[in-house]
């Protein structure tokens, strides 16, 4: 009986899953695949990619999923952030666009973060900018790290602590 129920649940779940990932996406077994070019071959191979992106919107016309809408997040004080951990996260997620102290390949799509402490911005404001900057600028290119589920609340607290510490 239990098996039957599990089977039924699976059956019910499958069509939803299929409806989400468009058929023209480079996906197999529900995973993101990357095209691989084989020299002197008429076939294009696909291999599993190091990351999986199937949960986010694609450019397919069949994709019926909505973009997560701009979201406010009222951060509660105190900040309780770990600036060392924040620095590691910044070098992973932010450095492509923002110049951080010590980077030899400074990105300049975003504003430079050197001497960030001088601005004396309120912690919740910086938190919101990282959580979802669309609240301040609907046309921003900066990703909404909180709303899109890329960073957790504590991650963002740590990033704020790091930025506030940059002399």
């Amino acid at each position: 009986m239990r098996l039957l129920l599990a089977g039924l649940a699976l059956l019910l779940a499958t069509p939803v899953w299929c409806a989400e990932i468009p058929s023209d996406a480079g996906v197999s077994d529900g995973k993101t695949m990357a095209p691989q070019i084989i020299v002197n071959s008429g076939r294009l191979e696909w291999a599993p990619y190091k990351r999986d992106f199937t949960r986010w919107l694609t450019l397919s016309y069949q994709d019926r999923r909505a973009t997560p809408e701009p979201t406010r997040f009222a951060m509660k004080l105190p900040l309780a952030g770990d600036k060392a951990r924040g620095k590691a996260l910044a070098w992973e997620w932010c450095i492509t666009c923002h110049t951080l102290p010590g980077d030899e390949w400074p990105g300049n799509v975003g504003s430079p973060m050197v001497h960030y402490k001088q601005y004396k911005h309120a912690d919740p404001l910086i938190f919101q900018q990282i959580f979802d900057p669309r609240i301040f600028n609907p046309n921003t290119v900066m990703p909404a790290f909180g709303t899109f589920g890329l960073l957790a609340e504590q991650d963002i607290r740590d990033l704020v602590a790091y930025l506030q510490s940059i002399e």
């Binding site: 468009p22 023209d24 996406a25 996906v27 294009l44 694609t58 450019l59």
Partner: peptide
Amino acid sequence: RTQPLRPGSQPY
């Protein structure tokens, strides 16, 4: 970090 589509698909 966007799921790519297949070459020859209409959007591409």
